[in-house]
Design a binder for these strands. Sequence first.
DNA 1: ACGGAGATGGACT
DNA 2: GTCCATCTCCGTT
Length: 199
Amino acid sequence: MIDLLGDAEHAAPSLLGCRLVRSTPAGERVGIIVETEAYLPDDPACHAYAGPTERNAEMFRSAGASYVYRIHRSHCFNVVTGPEGSGQAVLVRAIEPVVGVASMQRARRRATVGSTAPQGVALTNGPGKLCQALDIDLDLNGVKLVGETDRDAGVSLRLLPRETPAPIIERTIRIGISKARELPLRFVIRGNRWLSQSA
DNA sequence: ACGGAGATGGACT
DNA sequence: GTCCATCTCCGTT
C-alpha cells in the first residue's frame, strides 16, 4: 500500500522502491523510484505556496494524480499527495531502470538536443532525464496513477507498490532550489547508483 | 502585452 | 567550476 493521503513529507519516503510503469504501443518501460523530494503547502519552494494557478491546478486536486510541469528544456514529474485541495506533491528525481532499457535509451536520444548519446546512469538519474526516458510531458499532467487508471483512455502511466522489503532511506536537503534550501525534504535509497548528481 | 525566473541538463573552460 | 538553451507561467504594466 502506498501512502499518498498523508502529507508529502510522509509520502516521499514511502514512494522509494515503488515502480513507475509507462505503457505505450511501443512497449512497456518500468523504473524503480530511488530518489524523491517533498513539497509542502507552507513551503516557499512549493509551486502551490502562493495558491492555485493554472499551472499548479493539479496539485490542488486528488492525491494519486500526476503533476507535470516544464522547466527550461525539461519536464518534471510529481505525485500529488495529501488531502484534496491542500496543494502538495512529491517530485520524483531519479529512477532505476528495470524494464525497457533500450526503449528508454531511444527516447532519451530523441529528446537530447546535442550529439552525445546518454550512457550508463545518465539514462534516468535526474528529474528531467527520467521524464525523457519515459516520454513524460504535459500530456500526462493530471492523470490518475494508482488504482483504476485511465489506461483505456489511452493514458498509460501507473504507480505500483514495491515488491521488495522497505529500503534503507537517507534524508537530506533538496537540490537545485533557491527558496527554503535548508529543509531536509529529499529522500534517497542509501547507496543506490542511480541517484541524481547532487552538485 | 511584457519581462523575469525557474524543483534542469548538456557543453565547455 | 561556468554558461545558456528554450518555453511556460505568472506578476506586473
